[in-house]
Design a protein around this nucleic acid. Structure first.
Length: 288
DNA sequence: ATACGCCCCTGGTGGC
DNA sequence: TGCCACCAGGGGCGTA
């Protein structure tokens, strides 16, 4: 599921409820995620105060008093369930909370806010790293620049793509080139930039990179403003749906006319192809 | 160094 | 109704 806009939305939701709060209990129910969750994980969280959050690419970092940062990745199917503190003396129908399938970590704050990390496919991960060394964590060390920061510009992108003989689609999915893009937003950004996903990455350096950088920025910024895209299982921590999926211009819309092809005979509609095993959606007429 | 399959895992959907 | 193939927002790893 989650690409940069969804991860950002999840992080903001967590920050709103947890920042400055103390974790009363941490219950790790499964440790066999993408990688084994380290021994003692839950103990290190229990009693710690949540200082603040940071997002790096698709990773959420939760900084704790005591010097640890939790490194959370949502994988393909990860999400956060957040239940506000129960009203005093409230009696639920039937009492006991419904068991949540695939809920691997449950945190309860001192105020009684309940945070659940749910991840059916278990491609997500949980780890700890000293806050002062966050960026040296093995999963973060190789990440490219943040696409919404100033450091990400056409000059940097051109340099990163130089000599790359792989399709631009694959290059943009490479988190070492730029951090946070996934299958949906790469398709959308390439459409906006008018660049074919099949074009060799090296040939995007230059004028096309000048178009691609703002296209990526705009796509991500608009998606964050919409609360991300809700597909299948993605919801904001509050349970609200993101609505950016309604703004997709090519992703998931094979056969439809693209908005830049007003019904002309030259337009064959939005194409779906497979690149490195994953679906790519694009307009063959307007993306070159 | 780069690039491409394969694999990890569960669940939903659509065809027969 | 049942079964099965295929698809899904990620990404590390082994191999060529």
């Amino acid at each position: 599921m989650p690409e940069l806009p969804e991860v950002e939305t999840v992080m903001r939701g967590l920050a709103g409820r947890l920042e400055g709060r103390v974790i009363r209990s941490a219950d790790l129910r499964r440790a066999d995620l993408r990688w084994p969750v380290p021994a003692g994980f839950a103990v290190r969280l229990t009693g710690a105060r949540v200082e603040n959050f940071r997002r790096r690419g698709k990773y959420i970092l939760m900084r704790l008093s005591g010097g640890d940062s939790v490194v959370l990745h949502l994988g393909m199917s990860g999400r956060i369930n957040m239940i506000p503190a129960p009203v005093a003396n409230a009696v639920g129908l039937g009492g006991a909370p419904l068991p949540v399938l695939h809920e691997h970590l449950v945190l309860v704050s001192e105020e009684g806010v309940r945070i659940g990390f749910v991840d059916p496919r278990r491609f997500g991960s949980l780890d700890l790293v000293p806050t002062e060394n966050e960026d040296t964590h093995r999963l973060l060390a190789g990440l490219g620049p943040e696409p919404l920061e100033a450091e990400f510009d056409a000059k940097h992108l051109s340099a990163a793509l130089a000599g790359r003989r792989t399709p631009i689609k694959a290059a943009l999915l490479d988190q070492g080139i730029v951090a946070g893009l996934g299958n949906i937003y790469v398709c959308e950004a390439l459409f906006r930039a008018g660049i074919s996903p099949r074009r060799l990455a090296a040939s995007v350096a230059g004028a096309r990179a000048e178009r691609l950088v703002p296209a990526i920025r705009q796509t991500l910024t608009e998606a964050i403003a919409a609360g991300g895209s809700s597909l299948r299982d993605y919801v904001q921590p509050s349970g609200e749906l993101g609505y950016f999926q309604h703004a997709w211009k090519v992703y998931g819309r094979p056969g439809e006319a693209c908005e830049r092809c007003p019904g002309g005979a030259a337009c064959q509609g939005i194409d779906r192809i497979v690149q490195s095993g994953r679906s790519t959606f694009f307009c063959a007429r307007t993306q070159r």
